[in-house]
């Protein structure tokens, strides 16, 4: 694994049990992703993008092959180690935002830092900085149910970025947003990618997102059928 290489995927296979049968969601996927990439796993529904994203994020285990993320083999990680990896190095952005409903915007963004046991001062500074990035400094005390879809997703971006992770995984981040909000979110993520050198990996079939990607890994029926790096 080279210095700039952050993710190395080798012969990755993922099977799902369906009764007594197995459904193969990923077939021998081989891929390497470098630090600071802004890339996307693209393809239609059922192509295996979310499955691959979940395994990269240590939310699921591979059936065969392996993924090495920052020198950690996903298949060898214990539950606690996987949680530590997610906590320290990976930020997640979900299609449905997944904000914690009983917390305020501030508390939602603060949450990963609480798990990292950061001091109150560090937390406050980091949360306000992250909310400034996404332009929501004035919404610190709002609850998720008081936010629009675009605002909720910006909070989710702030939550993913607040701990300055090495990798951000975004699963269909614009699927529930209109064009203007999608553009706004993607601009923000692109800016953070450029400024902080954070690696962004998207799972998407949204053209609005695909236009922003600098690398497109096309998946179909669990196979990588194309890998295009844009200049």
């Amino acid at each position: 694994m080279g210095d700039s290489q952050i993710i190395q995927i080798s012969n990755l296979v993922k099977d799902y049990a369906m009764g007594k049968q197995f459904f193969r969601a990923l077939h021998d996927v081989n891929l390497s992703i470098n630090t600071g990439e802004f890339c996307g796993l693209v393809g239609p529904s059922g192509s295996g993008k979310t499955t691959l994203l979940n395994i990269i994020g240590a939310l699921d285990n591979p059936t065969g092959g392996d993924i090495i993320i920052m020198n950690n083999s996903i298949k060898d990680l214990k539950n606690k180690q996987a949680a530590k990896l997610r906590n320290e190095s990976i930020g997640f952005i979900f299609q449905t935002y997944n904000l914690l409903p009983v917390y305020t915007v501030f508390e939602n963004v603060e949450f990963p830092l609480l798990l990292l046991k950061k001091s109150k001062k560090e937390r406050e500074e980091a949360v306000m900085r992250a909310l400034e990035w996404v332009g929501l400094s004035d919404k610190v005390n709002s609850r998720p149910n008081q936010l629009s879809g675009g605002e909720s997703q910006r909070v989710a971006v702030a939550r993913a970025m607040v701990k300055l992770p090495r990798i951000v995984l975004a699963d269909e981040p614009t699927a529930n947003l209109d064009a203007a909000n999608s553009h706004n979110i993607l601009q923000t993520m692109l800016k953070l990618n450029l400024e902080l050198k954070t690696t962004f990996i998207f799972a998407t079939h949204d053209e609005k997102v695909i236009r922003y990607l600098r690398r497109k890994v096309a998946l179909s029926d669990g196979n990588v059928i194309n890998d295009i790096i844009m200049n």
Binding site: G57, L59, N79, K80, A83, K84, R86, N87, E88, F92, F94, T96, N98, L100, P101, F111, P112, L115, L116, R159
Partner: peptide
Amino acid sequence: RKEIGTLMALGMTKWD
């Protein structure tokens, strides 16, 4: 359950 998934994604273990 979705919240549980989110908590785990944010870095909590199952036991947490």
